[in-house]
C-alpha cells in the first residue's frame, strides 16, 4: 500500500471527551479539529450482561445505569467524568484489573471512524466471539491514533455484594483480591464478595474507612514493570536522605502489587523525568499522563516493533491526521 500525499495540517483531528485523559502520551498538536462522539446508552440487556454506549458517555453515567441492575463494568478511571471513548483510547486500567482484567478485556465490539473516513466495526456484541481480527483490542490503548470511537459494547459483571478495603502486613494471602496497593508505608487490599467471605479473608487485617488514593500533582505518569520487579522499582522512586537538595523533587507513588503498575506524581517535571529513568532501570517504561516536559513525550523510550506499528497506523490512518502528538509513531508524518 502506498501512503497518500501528506495532507493539510488544518486537517489534524483530535477526538475529545471529558479531557480527563487529555495529556496522556503527550498533548495533541495545537490547532487540531476537535471531534466529539455520541453520548448515551444505546442498548442494555442486563440478562446478557452487555451494554452498548456512545463513546461520549461518561463513566459516571455508565456506572449509574449498571448499578441500577446490580451490575458493573470495572473500567475504574481516575475520574468518573472520563468518557468511555477516552478510557478505551487511552487503555488506562483501574486498580481492580488484578481481579477483573485490564480495560481491553471488557470490550466486545467497537465502531470507529478511521483516518480516511470509513466507519468500521470490529468484534461482536456477544460475550464470546472470535470472528475476524481483534480490532477492539487493537483500539484499546491506541490513543486515538487509528480511529475516532463512535460506540462500544462492553461486558458487565455482577456487582459484588460487599467491597471493602483492608490494610495489614499480610495482604498477599487473600484469595484473588480485587486490588492490592502499596505506597511505601502500608499495603492495602480490596476484598470483594459475599459478607462471610470478605470477613473471613479480612480477619487479621484492619478495615479502611476510605479507599487509598493515587498520588496527584501537576506532573503525573504511570510506570509499567514486570510484577516481580514492582517493589524494587517503587522503592527506588523514594529519594534517599543522602541525595543532595538540588536533586529533582520528591516523587509520590502508589504501586499496584501483582500487576506491575506504579502511579507516580510530582511537583516538577524533572522529578517525573527521574521516575521515568527509574522505570527504565527496572526494565519498564513510563507513560506520561499529565504535565512533564514537552521534550519527554509518550513512553519516553523507542517503541518496540515500531516499523510494524507504523504499518498498522498507516492501515487505518494513511494520512496521519488522527491525534498527532499522542504517540511517538506520529513522528513519521511530522
Amino acid at each position: 500500500m502506498t501512503t497518500p500525499p501528506d495532507t493539510n495540517r488544518a486537517l489534524d483531528i483530535a477526538p475529545v471527551g471529558a479531557r480527563t485523559h487529555w495529556e496522556v502520551g503527550g498533548p495533541p498538536v495545537a490547532g487540531a479539529t476537535e471531534v466529539r462522539a455520541p453520548v448515551g446508552v444505546l442498548a442494555y440487556e442486563p440478562a446478557d450482561m452487555t451494554i452498548t454506549v456512545g463513546a461520549g458517555t461518561t463513566f459516571d453515567e455508565l456506572d449509574r445505569v449498571l448499578a441500577e441492575q446490580g451490575q458493573q463494568c470495572a473500567l475504574d478511571p481516575r475520574s468518573r467524568a472520563a468518557t468511555v471513548g477516552g478510557i478505551l483510547a487511552c487503555g488506562l486500567s483501574g486498580p481492580r484489573r488484578l481481579r477483573h482484567g485490564p480495560v481491553r478485556d471488557h470490550v466486545l465490539e467497537v465502531r470507529f471512524e478511521t483516518g480516511d473516513g470509513r466507519l468500521v466495526k470490529g468484534g461482536g456484541p456477544t460475550v464470546k466471539n472470535v470472528t475476524g481480527y481483534d480490532l477492539p483490542r487493537l483500539f484499546v490503548g491506541s490513543l486515538g491514533t487509528i480511529g475516532v470511537l463512535h460506540q462500544a459494547t462492553l461486558r458487565c459483571r455482577p456487582r459484588p455484594v460487599r467491597s471493602q478495603w483492608f490494610t495489614g502486613v499480610d495482604t498477599a494471602r487473600a484469595f484473588r483480591p480485587a486490588a492490592r496497593l502499596w505506597d511505601g508505608r502500608r499495603e492495602a487490599v480490596l476484598l470483594e464478595g459475599v459478607d462471610v467471605d470478605v470477613e473471613a479473608e479480612g480477619r487479621g487485617l484492619a478495615a479502611l474507612a476510605a479507599p487509598p488514593r493515587f498520588p496527584d500533582g501537576p506532573h503525573r505518569g504511570r510506570i509499567s514493570v514486570a510484577p516481580g520487579a514492582v517493589r524494587a522499582c517503587a522503592a527506588a522512586l523514594t529519594r534517599t536522605p543522602s541525595e543532595s537538595a538540588s536533586a529533582p523533587g520528591e516523587v509520590r507513588w502508589c504501586a499496584e502489587l501483582g500487576v506491575g503498575t506504579i502511579h507516580v506524581a510530582a511537583d516538577d517535571a524533572a522529578a517525573l523525568a527521574r521516575a521515568r529513568s527509574v522505570a527504565h532501570a527496572h526494565g519498564g517504561w513510563m507513560l506520561r499522563e499529565a504535565g512533564g516536559s514537552a521534550a519527554d513525550d509518550g513512553y519516553g523510550c523507542a517503541l518496540p516493533n515500531a516499523a510494524l506499528m507504523r504499518r498498522v497506523k498507516d492501515a487505518f490512518d494513511p494520512a496521519g491526521k488522527l491525534n498527532r502528538g499522542r504517540l511517538p509513531l506520529g513522528a513519521v508524518h511530522a
Binding site: 487493537l138 510484577p227 513512553y299 515500531a306
Partner: peptide, 10 residues
C-alpha cells in the same frame, strides 16, 4: 510481562 506494552496491542 509488564502491563500494557507501549504502543498498539499487537
Amino acid at each position: 510481562l509488564a502491563p500494557d506494552a507501549p504502543g498498539y496491542d499487537l
